[in-house]
């Protein structure tokens, strides 16, 4: 366990070492929230209403702030894994005294922790200016709990995409599609509350809402019922994907020992 903690802290230090990047990212976050607030500010004004499908304008801005936190802080390990699979490095890593997946989990978490903290700070300032006071404490709590499950689900997806390099040459394209599915079906750009019913049904049958919508929605409108439903969904999908990932990983490991990388 200790070695994974040190991997994690290494990654955090690595991330803080470049002040230029830090500044660039802060401005990016601010820009995204600004655009989003522009879109919804105008929309509420033209619709001449305070509430759309139960969400107010401040709700929307803070919703997006939390969603953006997760989007920027989710693991981005698929490229590294693909590279390691393609250039055969993975065969050497398998012999090292740590678990390949746990290694990437710790590294991704260290990286994500820095990005998420930065986003929460800068994002909250911008959201506060544009939309007023933040959600209540209960919202923060529910968001943090569901962030964990969401993050693990993202990790599983990224790892599976990375390991796909065993079978196909080009895996970066899969990441694009996965990201867009989260953007739409996960409710990143458009809260699921505003979907037509048929699309809501499709969306809830898939893992994506639990990867994005859950923390963001509970953050702005904490709701005990919804919390347990979302948490239940997360537990279910995490079980499914961890099982799937373990299975795929074992197959790849066997493939490696037979074919020698």
């Amino acid at each position: 366990m200790k070695k994974y903690l040190s991997i994690l802290s290494m990654q955090i230090i690595n991330n803080i070492a470049y002040p230029g990047d830090f500044l660039g990212r802060s401005i990016s976050i601010a820009t995204f929230i600004f655009i989003f607030a522009g879109l919804w500010g105008t929309t509420f004004m033209i619709a001449n209403t305070d509430v759309i499908n139960g969400l107010t304008f401040p709700n929307m801005v803070w919703y997006f702030m939390m969603a953006e936190t997760l989007e920027l802080g989710r693991p981005r390990i698929n490229r590294t894994i693909s590279e390691q699979v393609k250039n055969g490095e993975v065969a050497y890593i398998l012999n090292k005294p740590y678990n390949f997946l746990l290694y990437h989990f710790s590294a991704g978490l260290g990286d994500g922790a820095v990005r998420m903290t930065l986003n929460l700070i800068v994002g909250s300032i911008v959201a506060w200016i544009l939309a007023g006071a933040p959600p209540p404490l209960l919202g923060w709590l529910m968001a943090f709990v569901t962030l964990i499950g969401a993050w693990i689900l993202h990790f599983c997806f990224m790892a599976l995409i990375g390991l796909a390099a065993f079978v196909v040459e080009e895996t970066n394209s899969f990441e694009l599609i996965y990201q867009k599915l989260v953007f739409i079906l996960g409710g990143f750009l458009f809260p699921i509350d505003m979907f037509p019913t048929w699309l809501q049904n499709i969306s809830y049958a898939l893992p994506f809402p639990y990867m994005m919508y859950a923390p963001a929605r509970l953050f702005v409108k904490p709701d005990v019922d919804l919390f347990w439903r979302m948490l239940g969904g997360q537990v279910f999908w995490v079980a499914v994907f961890v099982f799937l990932l373990a299975f795929v990983y074992q197959r790849s490991e066997k493939y490696l020992t037979v074919n020698g990388g």
């Binding site: 599609i177 458009f190 505003m194």
Partner: peptide, 18 residues
């Protein structure tokens, strides 16, 4: 890459459809 980029843009555009 070509085909996936087309799908990518298409899925992204669903936002505006909605």
């Amino acid at each position: 890459q070509v085909i996936f980029m087309m799908i990518n843009n298409g899925v992204y555009f669903i936002f505006w459809v909605l």
